[in-house]
Structures are given as C-alpha cells and as structure tokens.
C-alpha cells in the first residue's frame, strides 16, 4: 500500500461498471506481474480497453500515467478476478481509485496487493470532476478536494479492511497478527 496518505494531482474520470477488460484487456494477461519488466508493461497498458474517444491513461513517455487519482461511478472493477487490473493501475503510477461502489474482487485485490487505495465516495463524483482537474485526496481525513475551487467531498471510512490496508496488504497484515512467519 502506498504509504503517503496525501495524494495530489490530476484526476482521470470514468463512469459506471468499469470492467476488468477495460482496465487491462485480456490480450495482455500473458504478462506476469511478479516479473518487474512485465509489471511495468502492464502499467503501460492500464485502461487500454477504453474506447478510443477517451484520452490515453498511461500517456507519459515512459509508459506511466500523469493521473494519480482515478474517479469512477458504480461497480468499479467488475468482471474477472484478474489481479492484473489493480496492478496495471498501480504499475502505471495511480495511487487511488475513488468510486461510488466496487465489484468485490477488484476491491479485495486492491487491498490484498496494496497497489491502489480503493476509496468510496459519499456522493457520485464522476459527474462532478472532469479529467484533468487537480485534486487532493486525504486518506486520514476521508476527503477529496478539488484544487481549482477548494471544494471538499467526503469519502466513506474504509471499514473492516482498514487493518489490512494500513498494514500494507494481505501478507504484511498476516505477519503483523502472527498468522504467518515474519
């Protein structure tokens, strides 16, 4: 899990039911995330499944993204169990997703891998923000603020998985509580 609890930068805005094929198309699933070079490649293909009318997400010259914050609507990350989805976002350099609700496995994989913070907004933000808006997420305070007008929107508290998130993922958590050897 990214340790910094303040995330600042431009947002990338998506709608409802952003599925794992949009997040990382199946033709890139031959890449194995635990191999560092293929991990970076996965990042460069993050959100490559979006229709061409969307701006490219991982558009930096080195295959990373200028957008550390992704904003979505309902049921973000639905579809397959591929962990490649949160990994692609994390590998591209995204730090947090702020969505109205999540598909279970995507949320779980985000928490377990520690690749991105899966945050839930109180309000539907995908119609409030535009791609490119500068924003600041404060994880300690559960807020996201738009920097152009300093408007603050509330995020939901993380709930039962908070200990796993603050430990930094599944393995770190299990070690912390003595479930597996250090």
């Amino acid at each position: 899990m990214p340790k910094d609890t303040m995330i600042r930068g431009p947002v990338y805005v998506l709608g409802d039911n952003i599925d794992t094929d949009l997040l990382i198309p199946a033709c890139y699933l031959n890449l194995v995330p635990t191999i560092p070079e293929e991990y970076r490649k996965l990042g460069s293909y993050a959100l490559a499944g979006l229709p061409d009318t969307f701006p490219k997400f991982a558009c930096n010259a080195d295959g990373t993204t200028p957008y550390p914050i992704v904003i979505g609507g309902r049921n973000f990350g639905c579809g397959s169990s591929r962990e490649h989805a949160p990994i692609a976002l994390g590998a591209a350099g995204a730090k947090a997703v702020v969505a109205e609700s999540y598909a279970r496995i995507f949320f779980r994989n985000s928490v377990a891998t520690g690749e991105v913070f899966p945050l839930e907004s109180e309000q539907r933000l995908c119609e409030v923000f535009k791609t490119g808006d500068e924003a600041e997420v404060d994880i300690a305070k559960n807020t996201i603020m738009r920097l152009s007008d300093n408007k603050v929107y509330a995020l939901k508290p993380v709930g039962a998985v908070a200990p796993v998130i603050s430990a930094g993922g599944m393995f770190a958590y299990a070690r912390e509580i003595g479930m597996i050897q250090p």
Binding site: P33, S80, S81, R82, E83, I105, R108, N109, A112, T113, A160, V164, G169, M170, F171, Y173, A174, M179, I180
Partner: peptide
C-alpha cells in the same frame, strides 16, 4: 469463490484465507 493472485499465493503457503 474467485480470488486474485496475492490471495492465492497466500493460500499456497498458509492453506487459509481471510474471508468476510
């Protein structure tokens, strides 16, 4: 139920998983 690689890697070693 379906899980991701990290949870599966955990099970491979530990034989159990945290489930809600």
């Amino acid at each position: 139920t379906g899980i991701g690689n990290t949870d599966a890697g955990f099970i491979l070693g530990a034989g159990k998983l945290l489930v809600k």
